[in-house]
Design a protein around this nucleic acid. Structure first.
Lengths: 283, 283
DNA sequence: CAAAAAATGTTAAAAAATTACATTTTTCTT
DNA sequence: AAGAAAAATGTAATTTTTTAACATTTTTTG
């Protein structure tokens, strides 16, 4: 895909002159996209058609097309070496890598989402008598965040971090209640039990978890998020961000479904916070 | 930055013919980058120089340069119509918009980060006697998440959601303690007070907040995150994700600084969780 | 070592973009 | 509302850039 990687890979297959062109482009791709074929040929010390042939060898239509591809490879976020964090990375390097891989994960997650389920779940949430958000470990903070969001909607919403509290809360569920369970792996025993308890009490259980996991099998609806395996850091990173973004999607769907009047109400909630804040002109 | 956004923004300033060109490009940017100026002129039903003038109005050197910019805007996941969620959006539309704008915000945030400060803060954290994470509202869940991460590192780490608990905790601070305060606006009164109290007790205060805010002024170090203003949904969305990613960066820096032996320890922590999970083969 | 094949360069033609200028449309003034 | 000024748009010509066709050189192979 990425043409810069492609150049590096195919380097062996290039002819002598083509290699010269490749060198120059790899050395300074930013200059390359702003040069004409004549300039680039002179820099590489080859003829213009050679540059052109070089472009075609990389499956582009010609030099202008090649520049387009190159520009895309160079575009802002495109991590051209989106590799894992390395032992010896400088702060600059690991910062960029983490941001880049987070963005990449979001892209993957986005594509894995089943919009129909999103729609169905939004439906459920808008009609719910009570909404509960539960997660453990890293997913606890996601549930916590969901509480924050839905709390503003003025709907009965519940969140507990404690396993026992979660259990007790679920035992009191009834039809019309929605329980949202968040877990990256979907293998946390106590959460699976929560799902079972909730369903026994006629609640609808929505899982934000990976497909085909034990938890997923106990849910009424599963919002599965395909997130590339978290790095070797032994900490959930990207998965959590994807879950949060999905919560954002649900919250947004919720407000859209509720309509305009509802959003005015939301604005009022926000205005209420004003008293606890320093005015903007103070800053 | 993004030329597609620029087109949308400047739309009002365009002349009649230029608007025609803008329409065509926005409608199908992918086609535009593969068209010649003649083709595009014909599609827009204007003359070629008009297209050229259109390009120059957007601060590009000319048509080819414009195409380069356009190609970059279209590259990777870059949300090309990073528009706000609209009243009548379908689930598919708002889902994509939210993911795209989240990714875009991360990109902006990434570029706004001062790596030197990151490095300095990682330094501080690795040497801290005790680390506290505090936030309120939406930022509370970010602090919660930070707790989760740093807890695994086996360092004394503290997190409270309650304002009074936060205050009390800070009063017991001493030199060598690091207090990390998280707030998007940096205008929450009680958090600013926490910063003051902490500093009076010789703790080092790190703010994850917007630059030049009241909170920022009370901090020893400020990790400022430039995040495009959150949408009209009256909920913090993108800012929170950026904060979380920054926490990931800090946590990663932390483990890198601590070295290899330390990461083995981390693996052990992870393995401990195994007992509470269903085995993979069960799935 | 010679013949074939591949690679590279030279020159010329084609395509594309840009400039200069003419014409039309719009805006403002009286 | 008429006419002048300014802005916008288009036409035609020029320049730049890219590509094609062919010639030459280099490399490979029997």
């Amino acid at each position: 895909m990425n043409i810069l990687e492609k150049i590096t890979q195919n380097k062996a297959a290039f002819s002598k002159s083509e290699k010269k062109v490749a060198e120059i482009i790899l050395a300074n791709p930013q200059t390359a996209i702003h040069s004409s074929i004549a300039t680039l040929a002179k820099m590489s010390d080859v003829s213009e058609p050679t540059v052109n042939r070089f472009c075609r060898r990389l499956d582009t239509k010609g030099f202008p097309d090649f520049k387009l591809h190159l520009a895309q490879s160079l575009a802002n976020g495109t991590p051209y070496v989106n590799r894992h964090v390395d032992e010896n990375d400088s702060p600059d390097e690991y910062t960029n890598k983490i941001f880049e891989s987070t963005m990449a994960s979001l892209e993957v997650a986005r594509q894995s989402i089943d919009v129909n389920v999103v729609n169905r779940v939004v439906d459920l949430l808008t009609q719910a008598q009570k909404i509960s958000f539960f997660g453990l470990g890293a997913s606890a903070s996601v549930a916590h965040d969901a509480l924050n969001k839905f709390f503003r909607f003025n709907v009965p919403v519940v969140y507990f971090e404690d396993i026992l509290m979660q259990r007790m809360s679920c035992m009191n569920c009834s039809a019309g209640d929605v329980v949202v369970l968040i877990s990256h792996t979907g293998r946390t025993k106590s959460l699976v039990e929560i799902a079972q308890i909730s369903r026994m009490n006629d609640a609808t259980v929505v899982g934000i978890t990976s497909a085909d996991s034990p938890l997923a099998q106990e849910c009424s609806y599963v919002l599965s998020l395909e997130v590339p395996e978290d790095t070797d850091m032994y900490m959930p990173m990207a998965s959590r961000i994807a879950q949060l973004t999905l919560i954002d999607v649900l919250a947004t769907g919720f407000t859209l479904r509720r309509g305009n009047k509802f959003r005015e109400n939301l604005k009022r909630v926000k205005d209420t916070l004003r008293g606890s804040r320093y005015d903007k002109r103070d800053g």
